[in-house]
Amino acid sequence: MKKLIILFLIIINLFGYKKIIYPSYISKLTFNKKYLIAGLENGEIIVKNFKTLKDIDKITLPKIHDFMDELIPMPIYSLDISPENNNLLILAQGGKCI
């Protein structure tokens, strides 16, 4: 039994897992065979290569005014990737019109 546990731990270490660290909390996450895309609570969208997990692009959404007229990061409601041409669709809250 002890050898089986050691073998299991060795296999886990060989295949391993990669830890992904983002500068803020993730509010939305989507992926396909090429990209891993995370929408963060600070209004940033980070695009990573799905296989290597290296950053490809970073999109910073503009800050908006809330109902108290304070500047806040734009909330991201949804992210989606087009399967045909890998276009990114971002659904986020807009600013107030004046």
Rank of each mutant, 00 (worst) to 15 (best):
K19C: 11
K19L: 15
K19M: 13
K19G: 06
I20T: 08
I20C: 13
I20W: 08
I20R: 07
I21M: 14
I21C: 14
Y22H: 10
Y22N: 10
Y22S: 13
Y22V: 12
Y22G: 04
P23A: 04
P23K: 07
P23S: 05
P23F: 03
P23W: 03
P23H: 01
S24C: 05
S24D: 01
S24G: 00
S24H: 00
S24T: 00
Y25H: 15
Y25W: 14
Y25C: 15
I26D: 02
I26C: 05
S27C: 12
S27E: 12
S27L: 09
S27T: 11
S27V: 12
K28A: 10
L29E: 12
L29P: 04
L29G: 11
L29A: 14
L29Y: 07
L29W: 07
T30E: 11
T30W: 04
T30N: 09
T30D: 07
T30F: 09
T30A: 11
F31Q: 15
F31M: 15
F31P: 08
N32C: 08
N32I: 04
N32L: 04
N32D: 14
K33G: 04
K33N: 14
K33P: 00
K34N: 15
K34E: 15
K34D: 15
K34L: 12
K34G: 09
Y35Q: 04
Y35L: 10
L36T: 11
L36V: 09
L36R: 05
L36I: 06
L36Q: 10
L36F: 11
I37S: 09
I37V: 09
I37E: 07
I37D: 07
A38K: 05
A38H: 04
A38M: 08
A38S: 13
A38L: 07
A38W: 01
A38F: 01
G39S: 04
G39H: 01
G39Y: 03
L40V: 01
L40S: 06
L40A: 05
L40E: 00
E41P: 02
E41I: 09
E41K: 12
E41S: 13
E41W: 07
E41L: 13
E41H: 12
N42G: 02
N42M: 01
N42Y: 04
G43H: 03
G43Y: 07
G43W: 00
G43V: 00
G43T: 03
G43Q: 02
E44I: 00
E44G: 01
E44C: 05
E44Q: 06
E44N: 05
I45H: 00
I45G: 06
I46V: 10
I46F: 06
I46L: 11
I46G: 08
V47Y: 04
V47S: 09
V47D: 00
V47K: 03
K48H: 13
K48L: 11
K48A: 08
N49A: 05
N49C: 06
F50Y: 13
F50C: 08
F50W: 03
F50A: 13
F50E: 14
F50Q: 14
K51A: 14
K51E: 15
K51C: 13
K51G: 12
K51R: 10
K51Q: 15
K51F: 13
T52I: 06
T52G: 11
L53G: 01
L53W: 08
L53Q: 08
L53S: 09
L53M: 07
L53F: 11
